[in-house]
């Protein structure tokens, strides 16, 4: 078996794990276990949310060192699950190199169904509006906001706009639509529309992962993700607040 090729695949798995929203301890432990499975020595892994480095000693005694950067992180829970299974199989030595390559290629080349994501935006916006006490017209407006937000966020992501500015702009959009609908007497319960739709922007993953990182003892990563979560929550509030202030007198 070609060691360097195996290590290349292992690095790729680590990068994908980071990209699709795994906790830091999971990335470190997965890499370590896979390398142990192949019998490498002196394995040291260090990871932070956008970067990891792996160093070890090959079977013939030469040192090996690699690092990967993963900038555009995007949660994809399906892939997280598949990668988790793949890591377990590799650590138990159940797969050959070719099989590993095929599975990784399959994960990487998989096409997303964007229509389902759009449906997700519309449905959860409408339903969380009902959750916060909205009636039929409010749900309708929320669904519309969900639809607009999906395309708005998609556009901003294509333009690679900073995530904080993106959140502020998106929350401004949702607040302005809700307030205008309220002012034109189309809806009566503006609160349910705004709270329901801002659920789409809440940084749930950042919060969960930061806590789980801190439990795992990775305070650097945990804190950086917690700051991310706090900043995003603040930007939601700022965006909504700005539009409330601007449209107050209209």
């Amino acid at each position: 078996m070609n060691e360097l090729e195996i290590l290349q695949q292992i690095n790729k798995i680590g990068q994908l794990l980071l990209k699709h929203g795994a906790e830091i301890y999971r990335v470190e432990e997965s890499l370590k276990r896979m390398c142990e499975g192949f019998g490498f020595q002196d394995i040291e892994v260090f990871a932070i949310p956008s970067y990891f480095t792996l160093s070890l000693t090959l079977h013939d005694g030469t040192p090996y060192q690699s690092s990967r950067r993963s900038r555009s992180n995007r949660t994809h829970l399906d892939h997280l699950y598949e990668l988790n299974c793949l890591v377990r199989q590799i650590s138990n030595q159940e797969l050959t190199l070719d099989e590993i390559k095929t599975i990784i290629h399959k994960i990487e080349s998989e096409k997303l169904n964007y229509r389902l994501i759009l449906i997700g935006y519309v449905v959860s916006a409408a339903m969380f509006c009902a959750f916060f006490g909205g009636h039929l017209t409010e749900m309708l407006v929320s669904a519309l906001i969900g639809l607009i937000l999906y395309y708005f966020i998609y556009l901003l992501e294509r333009l690679d706009v900073n995530v904080i500015v993106r959140t502020i702009l998106s929350s401004m959009v949702l607040a302005s639509i809700a307030i205008i609908a309220q002012k034109t007497q189309f809806i009566t319960n503006q609160q349910s529309v705004i709270t329901g739709t801002l659920m789409l922007l809440v940084p749930g993953i950042a919060i969960t992962n930061s806590l789980r990182d801190i439990i795992g003892g990775d305070f650097v990563s945990g804190l950086s993700r917690m700051i991310e979560a706090i900043l995003l929550a603040a930007s939601i509030a700022i965006g909504v607040g700005i539009m409330m202030m601007v449209l107050k007198g209209v």
């Binding site: 399906d78 959860s124 339903m127 969380f128 959750f131």
Partner: peptide, 20 residues
């Protein structure tokens, strides 16, 4: 109503987080 809408709303969120 809240529980029902929470269920469907969460189900919608799973699509956003790409469980397909």
């Amino acid at each position: 109503i809240q529980c029902l809408s929470a269920f469907i709303g969460c189900f919608g969120f799973t699509f956003i987080f790409r469980i397909q």
